[in-house]
């Protein structure tokens, strides 16, 4: 993943959310899959829904190690929840 790469939520209208204080569940209408997210994963995905972000920016906004954010972005990408912002 290039250091400057920016990512965004794949299609905000096709991602449905159910939120609770510590967890959230999202449904990706493009893949038909349902995902359980912990608080930090949900926060990251919400930020990507608000606009494209780089791993560095996300790590700073969420006060999380950059390596952890990169792992998360990789996982989101594999699940088809995000796409590169070009």
């Amino acid at each position: 993943m290039p250091r400057s790469a920016r990512w965004r939520l794949i299609d905000a209208e096709r991602i449905l959310w159910e939120r609770w204080p510590d967890e959230c569940i999202v449904y990706n209408d493009l893949s038909g899959q349902t995902h359980l997210l912990n608080r930090s994963a949900a926060a990251a995905l919400e930020l990507l829904g608000a606009g494209a972000e780089s791993a560095e920016a996300l790590a700073e906004k969420l006060a999380v190690e950059r390596a952890e954010i990169e792992r998360l972005l990789q996982e989101f990408d594999q699940l088809g929840l995000i796409e590169p912002d070009e």
Partner: peptide, 10 residues
């Protein structure tokens, strides 16, 4: 938790 109930039910 609600999330647990959601996934089991779904």
């Amino acid at each position: 938790p609600a999330s647990y109930a959601f996934l089991r039910l779904a």
